[in-house]
């Protein structure tokens, strides 16, 4: 453990894991609430094209990825608002376009598939000091907006039409959610990787809502689970020499499985103690 912590790359990887673990569920909760759980995946694929663009042009891939991901996220939201394309078709187009664009541009840049691989599934040894600064700034931005604006974002994701009638600028917030998701994906790129980042946005939320009743506790517990999974995943991937992305996601899934079992058991006990009382005239 102490040996592990003495490596600078491990220190950087663990700090990146803290930011990733907190930011991904912070915004992911709103995607799940809106039933857009796969949006993160779509944007992740688009960000891949951004990474390849960075490799091709020599600009830092984190920056090109965040720029391209934001453009992709805004385009999806605009398609959802004004287009005649249904949400899932728009997502499918992103998946295919993003993945093939990424691989194609990497080929053109003369880089091997291996260099793309570190972005696909994360790589703890390659987080640079420069990367870490960008990751920290972006993650703090995502977390503070997702938590600070949660009354507004909650209302928009809970009932879009009621929010509009209440005077909430729903379009602005919808685009904000998509942009924050895009930024989070770039934050998580070095630890979880682009293909699995969406899992860290969704699985902790799915796990926490097995045990919670309120939005606020679901949100907070999801961030806690994300943090534990990201840190635990980076440590285990060092110990057992695996790629961090799949390791983090497997840990999150394990938490989900335990929470689902525990949640089912407590609901069962509760309903046995308090059978539904039809006599109360509940309508």
């Amino acid at each position: 453990m102490t040996e592990m912590l003495s490596y600078e790359f491990m220190q950087r990887a663990l700090i990146a894991a803290v930011f990733t673990g907190l930011a991904a569920p912070a915004i992911g909760t709103f995607l799940v609430q809106r039933r857009l759980a796969l949006l993160g995946d779509g944007i992740g694929h688009v960000a891949l094209t951004g990474v390849a663009l960075g490799l091709l042009t020599g600009i830092a891939p984190v920056l090109t990825a965040v720029a391209v991901a934001i453009v992709g996220a805004v385009v999806i939201e605009l398609l959802r608002m004004f287009g005649r394309t249904s949400g899932d078709v728009a997502l499918a187009i992103l998946f295919y376009g993003g993945l093939s664009g990424g691989v194609l541009l990497t080929n053109l840049a003369g880089e091997s598939a291996a260099s793309l691989n570190t972005y696909l599934f994360g790589s703890i040894t390659t987080v640079s000091d420069g990367d870490l600064k960008i990751v920290a700034i972006l993650a703090v931005l995502v977390i503070s907006l997702a938590v600070g604006l949660s009354p507004q974002l909650f209302a928009v994701c809970q009932d879009e039409e009621h929010a509009r009638v209440s005077g909430v600028p729903v379009r602005v917030y919808s685009i904000l959610i998509a942009v924050l998701a895009a930024v989070t994906i770039t934050v998580a790129m070095r630890t979880v990787g682009l293909l699995l980042v969406s899992a860290l946005m969704v699985v902790p939320v799915a796990a926490s809502q097995q045990l919670t009743r309120s939005f606020r506790t679901t949100h907070a517990a999801a961030m806690a689970i994300g943090l534990v999974a990201a840190l635990g995943g980076v440590v285990s991937s060092y110990e057992i020499n695996t790629q961090p992305g799949p390791t983090i996601v497997m840990l999150a899934l394990a938490v989900f499985a335990v929470a689902a079992l525990f949640g089912a058991a407590t609901r069962r006990v509760r309903s046995r103690r308090h059978p539904v009382d039809f006599g109360r005239g509940d309508i």
């Binding site: 909760t29 799940v32 609430q33 809106r34 039933r35 759980a37 909650f154 994701c157 809970q158 009932d159 039409e161 939320v205 809502q209 919670t212 009743r213 309120s214 939005f215 606020r216 679901t218 949100h219």
Partner: peptide
């Protein structure tokens, strides 16, 4: 359309 993808209490 009261029930969304994440739990929410009456109060919330």
């Amino acid at each position: 359309r009261a029930v969304a993808g994440v739990p929410a209490t009456v109060h919330e």
